[in-house]
Structure formats: C-alpha cells, structure tokens
Amino acid sequence: MSLMPTCQSVQERATDYLEGQLGLRARLGIRLHLLLCRACHAFVDGLRHLPGFAKRALGLPSETPPGSHAALEAALRRIRAGD
C-alpha cells in the first residue's frame, strides 16, 4: 500500500486525523498529502477551524428566551406543590 493516500481517503479520515486517532503511518501519509494538495489542505484546515467558529456563531444570545420563563414558572408550581 502506498504511503500517500488519495484525496477521498484523506477527507474520509480527516476527523480521525484531527482527533489524533490515526497510527503513525497513516498520520504521516496524510501530512505528506496535505503538503502537496491544496484542496485537501483547505478541507482539513476548515474542519480544524469549524469548532471555534461555531462556538462564536452559536454563543449565548443576549436575551433570555420567553420559553425559559414559562419553564421556570411550571417548575416552581411543581416545587411548591411538593413534586
């Protein structure tokens, strides 16, 4: 088996690669591929940046949603009733 994986193989294993779940040979193969393939480099780099970007995009909203007050009131009714 060649050390150099295909683009498809790199993209299929990109999360395992980023999560440090691949063995040395597979890891080196992907690293080598990423040095030579601009498309896969962008793909893996994008996946690497996704969690941080998502955290910022999906941060805590400034307003408390109305449904949460209704949930609190319902919970308080149950607590006062001895639930």
Binding site: T6, C7, Q8, A42, H49
Partner: peptide, 17 residues
C-alpha cells in the same frame, strides 16, 4: 472524487474560514 479518489473540482481561491 474521480474513480482514483482524486478531486474532480478545483479548490476555491480562499478557504471559507
């Protein structure tokens, strides 16, 4: 990908992030 597992499309000029 093509039948050999290589990209069929050229990458965009600038990554999305």
């Amino acid at each position: 990908f093509d039948s050999r597992g290589h990209h069929l499309e050229a990458p965009g000029a600038v990554p999305w992030h």
